[in-house]
Design a binder for these strands. Structure first.
Lengths: 199, 199
DNA sequence: GTCTATAATTTGATAGAC
DNA sequence: GTCTATCAAATTATAGAC
């Protein structure tokens, strides 16, 4: 099924897909093995414990997510386009992949995560907020752009999008996600939904 | 441990506390039995299947949550006070109980919930949005108050608060929750944080 | 209503052959 | 690196005595 790249990469890819639908305790080494086409003992060879696997999956997810967003300081890309790209990333996973954000789901389960996995999820949120904060500091349309205010707005956008995925998935309505994006990001002037479906 | 009321009530109370920290698949009949002081077979007597238990827990949670909020149409209570009360309910569960919103966590796990349980979570979101919508329609400070706009703002508040609990819990910082509330609800005029710590 | 006992399955993980 | 075989523990759930 997932047969691109090395075995370790296939395992990570499969584990991520399972985790984003079922949560950390919702997938097993046997689930992964069956999808990759090996035995569960072979999965343990690559990732000795489930915490090891969880850490690897979360780190890979975070790196890939941020890389896809691009440099928040790139002068060639308008801040509001970057914001639209951020929302579009979540929307794509919701609509095309029909999956949660890995760290949104893991974050909800943080009390039952092994400590090293929880630390990775924390890293995703911290790096996400930092990325958004840089973008928001460049965007003057929202008013004040001091440190505290841009951080607060970054946290608000992150939280709203994570919540939007949960509510939209549960209600089975994509429009709910779009409504929340509209209500959160594009308060000042231009609606962001236009550029959102791109990419 | 949970020894108020009937056995069935103790089971529901215990199950809710476990579910709000560990998620639907993160607690077992034995966990509940041990805390209540009976055997797991006795839990099955009251709630034959785990789906039965999940439905009962979610419905009880939803009813209690909405009852605590009060009538959104009550002319004696200002809309903005009702909004503050809504945010305060989540804040209390975050700070005092150190627990997630049951339906926020279940919503994140919706793909692995038995269908009847998922339906109850949907009910929580629908009733929450309806409650917020009524309040927002009464509150003119946000500008337009037409049906579509108030619904969109209701969804946005719900999503932001659910996301806020996840992010604040994962980062281990209550201030993060407060920042998001500030950035979501009290955009127009008066800050809501004042009345938030009450109740 | 609560218990003992147990079934049937699944889980994460390891030992050791190849 | 991958396999077979296996372990110890945990899971939901049921049968039947009291």
């Amino acid at each position: 099924m997932a047969s691109t790249g090395t075995k370790a990469a296939d395992i990570l890819e499969t584990a991520e897909n399972l985790a984003r639908n079922r949560g950390y305790h919702g997938f097993s080494y046997r689930d992964i093995a069956a999808k990759v086409g090996i035995k569960s003992a072979s999965v343990h060879y690559h990732f000795p414990t489930k915490a090891d696997l969880g850490v690897a999956v979360a780190r890979r997810y975070t790196d890939r997510f941020l890389a896809a967003l691009g440099d928040p300081r790139d002068p060639k890309t308008a801040p509001r386009l970057l914001l639209a790209r951020y929302a579009a990333a979540f929307r794509k996973s919701l609509v095309e992949d029909r999956q949660m954000c890995l760290c949104g789901l893991f974050g909800a389960e943080v009390a039952v995560l092994p400590a090293p996995v929880a630390a990775e999820v924390r890293g995703f949120f911290e790096r996400s907020v930092e990325w958004l904060q840089v973008v928001l500091a460049r965007d003057g349309s929202g008013g004040a752009v001091d440190e505290a205010e841009s951080r607060r707005r970054a946290l608000t956008i992150l939280a709203a999008l994570q919540g939007a995925m949960i509510v939209a998935r549960t209600l089975g309505r994509v429009e709910v996600f779009d409504d929340i994006v509209e209500g959160t990001i594009s308060s000042p002037s231009t609606p962001l939904t236009a550029g959102m479906k791109a990419d």
